[in-house]
Write a protein that binds this DNA or RNA. Structure first.
Lengths: 188, 188
DNA sequence: TCCTTAGTTGAATGATCGTTCCAAAACGGG
DNA sequence: CCCGTTTTGGAACGATCATTCAACTAAGGA
């Protein structure tokens, strides 16, 4: 068996994620993709099917990684509230890079079933550990007990979207930090 | 002077706004526009220049109308806090229709100067009356005085974006209402 | 009725798009 | 060195894109 240089599929997919984050699906051409992925045009089609399938793969990869990052940040602190704060701070810190989740929702709404399914999946995966830590923080008295944990998750996720839009619109870091703080304040 | 049926420019522009709200700039074709605007292709180019200029006109018109609607809702109540709540409720009620402001920011970020300029303009036009009413509500004790009015405006606008994204992603009305309430609660 | 003006529409332009076919190139194991 | 596998890139296809030209229709005022 002969094996010339095989390219790293995951690495190529990561590059595709970057392009889609920046330019969306419609704004991205096959040429832009092959250039950034550093693979030939034919390899792209052989490996990922077509542009739409590649987009779905990119969204899937992105939301898997992003969700995992959220969860591990959430659990990175002993104290539950501090874990939640750390997630907020992470979102603020990374807000300058466009979010593929927000972008894909903006671009397609609920028109593409496969896309919506992925969003729902990621949301659910996020919800479970978040609810857990929110309850914890409520018991510790760091979060108000007036709010349902589920509602708190929804509010946090919504705030994340808002912060990301603000960042994409050019808001400076100070403003983004302030937004995160007010959001946390809302839950006390 | 002879005058055959002239079409209503503002009405046509409103139709264009609708299409762009739903499909974005890249996702909208000239054919989609002429169909919904109910005008001939050539009339489109004669009247609005080209697709990009039409898009800018649409964004401009949308943000002017939307800003005005926000302001008049804000001032529709005697009580300042009730005015602010009314704005939140209006955003929630209309969130099912995509927001052209959010969409254009998502699609272009800060790459298009003319677009960013329009966003900045609308934001400033909104800020002034909002700050006024926020101060009023703070003096009345309905809003916390711990927060800078400017920060409160930023937070509200950010929350609006978040709610609109949530709605575009398929969140039901109950969830959207809850999000609005938590946001208001944050400011007490 | 005829002219002027406004709007429409078919045809064409040139660009770019996604995608496929295919031949050549690159490369590692025998 | 050659074989087999993987990747590449030119060429081409058909579709669609934004946009323009020019001939057409429609309608109100003279």
């Amino acid at each position: 068996m002969a094996r010339p240089r095989e390219f790293d599929t995951a690495q190529a997919l990561d590059a595709a994620v970057q392009v889609f984050r920046e330019h969306g699906f419609e704004g991205t051409s096959a040429a832009m993709l092959t250039k950034r992925m550093r693979i030939g045009r034919q390899s792209l089609y052989d490996t990922f099917g077509d542009k739409w399938k590649l987009y779905l793969s990119a969204v899937s990869r992105y939301s898997t990684l992003e969700t995992s990052a959220h969860i591990s940040t959430l659990n990175s602190k002993e104290n539950a509230f501090e874990g939640i704060r750390a997630v907020v701070e992470r979102v603020v810190a990374e807000a300058r890079m466009p979010c593929l989740g927000v972008n894909s929702i903006c671009e397609f709404g609920v028109r593409q079933t496969e896309l919506s399914a992925q969003h729902a999946l990621a949301a659910e995966r996020l919800r479970v550990p978040f609810v857990k830590r929110i309850r914890e923080a409520q018991l510790a008295g760091d979060l108000t007990s007036e709010l349902e944990p589920d509602a708190v998750v929804d509010f946090l996720v919504t705030t994340f979207s808002g912060i990301r839009i603000a960042a994409r619109g050019g808001a400076d870091d100070g403003k983004l930090k302030a937004l995160g703080e007010i959001a946390l304040r809302a839950l006390r």
